[in-house]
Simulated assay, not measured.
Amino acid sequence: MPLLIYSLLRLALFGAALGLLYVVGLRGWLLPIVAVVVALALSYLTLTKPRDAATRWIAARADRRAAERAVFPNVDADAAHEDAQVDQRFRTD
Rank of each mutant, 00 (worst) to 15 (best):
I5G: 00
L8C: 04
L9Y: 07
R10F: 08
R10E: 15
L11Q: 10
L11S: 10
A12K: 05
L18A: 06
L21K: 02
V23H: 11
V23T: 07
V23N: 05
R27C: 04
W29N: 13
W29P: 14
L31W: 09
L31D: 08
P32A: 02
A35V: 04
A35Q: 09
V36G: 05
V36L: 14
V38M: 03
A39E: 14
L40M: 12
A41V: 10
L42D: 03
L42H: 07
L42I: 04
S43W: 02
L45K: 15
T46W: 15
T46S: 11
T48S: 15
P50A: 06
R51V: 01
A53T: 01
A54R: 04
A54Q: 03
R56L: 15
W57Q: 11
I58L: 14
A59K: 15
A62P: 10
D63Y: 00
D63G: 00
R65T: 03
R65D: 09
E68T: 12
R69G: 14
A70P: 01
V71Q: 14
V71A: 15
F72R: 13
P73C: 11
P73F: 12
N74E: 14
D76G: 04
A77T: 10
A77C: 03
D78V: 03
D78L: 09
E82G: 02
D83E: 13
D83K: 10
A84V: 03
Q88M: 01
F90D: 06
R91G: 01
R91Q: 11
T92L: 10
